[in-house]
């Protein structure tokens, strides 16, 4: 998705994992996605650079759709859709 679309995307769930380092945010994403229905969206907030790389790869392996990442002040918003 384009940056402007991500900025206005209303997600079904937001996971704030800014208090944990790798692999904490990945595990938080794994925990949270179980509560989503197919087609629903989620954002993961993380200040961890490794997570920015890991979550798109994880989405691909798990069959979920990675929508994109927004860089905020000191953290990332990583968007995905459960397939």
């Amino acid at each position: 998705m384009e940056t402007e679309e991500l900025k206005t995307l209303s997600v079904n769930k937001s996971v704030d994992a800014r208090g944990t380092a790798c692999p904490g945010p990945l595990l938080e994403a794994k925990k949270a996605i179980g509560g989503l229905g197919s087609g629903e969206t989620m954002e993961v907030l993380s200040a961890d650079e490794g997570t920015r790389v890991d979550i798109p790869k994880w989405c691909k392996k798990q069959g979920h759709e990675y929508l994109g990442t927004l860089e905020e002040n000191g953290y990332f918003r990583i968007f995905l859709k459960k397939v």
Binding site: C22, P23, L26, L27, A29, K30, D54, W58, K61, Q62
Partner: peptide, 11 residues
């Protein structure tokens, strides 16, 4: 432990 958690996330 870090490797195990990463692998767990990938099932």
């Amino acid at each position: 432990g870090v490797m195990m958690v990463g692998a767990a996330a990938d099932d």
